[in-house]
């Protein structure tokens, strides 16, 4: 099976965002992503899986299959769902060490950061931190 690397997926996302001219187009795209999120099972919507630092509620879970991590998430706010879905697309089905080391430069390149309020930007960072923590936890468990 030929799996794409984090960098390759980042490049895909960047080229998709290139055709979105205005902030409105970008938000609409994020909202669409929010509607197609691989949802977390209801029973995991607990405080244990909650990502703190978001104004809305957001739950995130990681599962390991073979040597790769798979993420699922949910939020009560759709823009948050869209943002986490974007991150899931890039980081899910990747090796923990690659997730932990990912620079995620696409976030700056797609021009989304300038459209996010400081609150949202903090929320996005909290999501990334949590995903990397999951990856690091798996790495330290195996060492």
């Amino acid at each position: 099976m030929n799996l794409k690397s984090i960098n390759e997926i980042e490049e895909e996302v960047i080229s998709e965002f290139e055709i979105l001219d205005t902030w409105m187009d970008k938000y609409e795209y994020i909202i669409e992503l929010g509607k197609s999120l691989p949802l977390i099972d209801e029973k995991f919507k607990t405080d244990d899986y909650k990502v703190s630092g978001c104004q809305s509620q957001l739950w995130l879970k990681a599962d390991k299959e073979n040597d790769r991590l798979f993420f699922s998430a949910d939020s009560d706010a759709i823009i948050s769902k869209g943002l986490i879905n974007l991150l899931i697309r890039v980081l899910s089905n990747q090796k923990p060490e690659d997730i932990a080391n990912a620079k995620l430069e696409f976030i700056d390149k797609i021009g989304m950061k300038e459209h996010l309020s400081p609150n949202r930007a903090n929320g996005l960072q909290a999501m990334i931190d949590q995903m990397k923590r999951f990856a690091e936890a798996y790495l330290s468990k195996n060492n």
Binding site: W23, M24, Y27, Q55, S56, D76, A77, I78, I79, S80, H115, S117, R120
Partner: peptide
């Protein structure tokens, strides 16, 4: 059923 945070984000923009 739109979350207030989503509404506020778009209104802000």
């Amino acid at each position: 059923d739109i979350h207030p945070y989503d509404t506020g984000t778009i209104l802000d923009r």
